[in-house]
Nucleic acid binder design. Structure first.
Length: 479
DNA sequence: ATGTCC
């Protein structure tokens, strides 16, 4: 492939019509990241995605790009709704994996309880781990309501308030959801998994604001130095995973039916407006709604647990959701393409929506600032709060990175970690980590990830999203 | 990410 450097942090993979590329590839990264990206094969996945029917402008990769199923994690692909395709490989297995940030009216130095006890209490109260169920057990009729209503269901059931809905992407509900499309197998996996964290890179983290970069915006958003924060990263658990699996079969058959040629079967796709495309959209929306209800319930569990162990009233903590963003999703958004407004299916696969100030998709209270973009790093370093940048519409279909991005695969990380005790190492840094799975901490150790500061620096430089504040972890709960 | 293979 031919790669041209267009700017300090912009690399273009030239469009090669002979291999079916319909648009060029664009990778936002620095020189050293680019080398890793080329070596591990995810640049090739960017090229593959550029062949998808109806793709507009470019097949885009964020600086946290790494190898994934079909499209790389950190990939953004926008297809024309009328003449383009939709692909489960462009969304991922964990549909609406995402992250939310809750801020408190409490400084970390005001905490009198031993952090170890706080971590233990959180760990004991937040169901987590592979395949683990929680305390909420639903019948089919009720789970259907969750799939239809998303965060609204959680709020109706007392796990949150109107303010939470206002501060969740799409208000925590996609209207395209049709619970009748979801397989019984997916339902079976969902009955007891609402309000559970899961495993892998999912986590619940108590931290604090260590540094502020944009004072005005931080002030407007109610952020202050030393402030206690809660970060929750989870998704649609087994239910979403099953929905993705169910549709991979459907889309493989669709390739033949619609005579679509893709270089990688993992990019199996169908026209957005085909029955297959529409059914996937209806099912994906159910999984997305489940994930939003899940994070809303986790938020409520964590806040109550925290108030309990700190021996303060919830109302005195004054918890408030800054924002909840989706990482793995398709959204229908309007963009100007060749001077014409088009409705596009924006696939974000390990990418966060990043709406600039003035966007009509923003709730009124964020219209002047732009959208809070929450970027978790790794459990030993830091996380960032950014704000949607003015160049996001032209550079990335209003998308930013979603995290640090892996440098080691899960397998390699476990191998590299050998007999290291990651929890002990982090404790020496003043971070309490409790994990349910034995392997999880090795898979998720800080060395397995890029330095999120470098990743964030690139989207900041490109004005895709601007740095507002940096968070430091205090205690982390993992599955 | 995931009842880490139906």
């Amino acid at each position: 492939m031919k790669i041209k450097q267009l700017d300090r942090y912009i690399f273009e993979i030239e469009k090669d019509g002979k291999i079916g590329m319909k648009v060029p590839g664009i990778i936002y990264a620095d020189q050293s990241m680019l080398e890793d990206i080329l070596n591990e094969g995810s640049a090739n996945q960017v090229v593959n995605a550029a062949t998808l029917p109806g793709i507009k402008k470019a097949s885009i990769a964020m600086p946290d790009i790494h190898y994934g199923y079909g499209l790389p994690i950190g990939g953004v692909v926008a297809t024309d709704v009328k003449e383009g395709v939709i692909t489960p490989g462009g969304v991922g297995f964990d549909i609406n994996c995402g992250v939310r940030l809750i801020k408190f009216d409490l400084g970390k130095d005001e905490i009198k309880t031993d952090l170890k006890d706080v971590a233990k209490h959180l760990y004991n109260n937040i169901p987590c781990g592979v395949g683990e169920g929680g305390n909420i057990k639903l019948k089919k009729k009720e789970l259907k309501n969750v799939l239809k209503k998303g965060s609204y269901w959680a709020v109706e059931e007392g796990y949150g308030n109107e303010n939470d809905l206002l501060n969740t992407e799409s208000s925590g509900k996609l209207d395209e959801a049709n619970p009748d499309i979801v397989s019984n197998k997916a339902y079976e996996r969902g009955y007891d998994q609402l309000g559970t964290l899961g495993s892998g890179n999912h986590f619940l983290e108590l931290g604090y604001v260590e540094e502020i970069f944009l004072e005005d915006i931080a002030k407007e958003w109610g952020l202050f130095k030393g402030q206690l924060t809660l970060l929750i990263h989870s998704g649609s658990r087994g239910l979403g995973h099953q929905i993705c699996s169910d549709f991979l079969d459907v889309f493989e058959k669709a390739l033949k039916k619609y005579q679509i040629d893709v270089p990688d079967k993992q990019l199996a796709c169908a026209p957005v407006l085909s029955p297959e495309g529409q059914e996937y959209l209806a099912a994906l929306s159910c999984a997305a709604n489940f994930a939003w209800a899940n994070r809303q319930i986790l938020q409520s569990l964590a806040i109550n647990t925290l108030a309990d162990i700190l021996k303060v009233k919830v109302k005195n903590l004054n918890p408030s959701l800054l924002y909840d963003v989706a990482h793995n999703i398709v959204k229908f958004e309007k963009f100007e393409i060749d001077g014409e407004e088009k409705l596009l299916a924006v696939h974000r696969k390990g990418a966060t929506r990043s709406l600039p100030r003035g966007s009509e998709l923003l709730p009124t209270h964020y219209k002047n600032t732009g959208q809070p973009v929450i970027i978790p790093g790794d459990m030993g370093r830091y996380s960032y709060i950014l704000v949607g940048g003015d160049k996001a519409p032209v550079r990335s279909f209003n998308s930013a990175c979603h995290g640090a991005g892996r440098v080691l695969s899960r397998h390699k990380a476990i191998k590299m970690a050998q007999n290291r005790n990651i929890a002990t190492e982090l404790k020496q840094e003043g971070i309490i980590v409790i994990s349910r799975g034995k392997k999880t901490l090795k898979e998720e150790m800080p060395d397995a990830y890029k330095d999120v500061s470098k990743v964030v620096e690139i989207v900041d430089y490109l004005d895709i999203a601007k740095k507002v504040a940096k968070l430091k972890p205090l205690c982390v709960i993992k599955g």
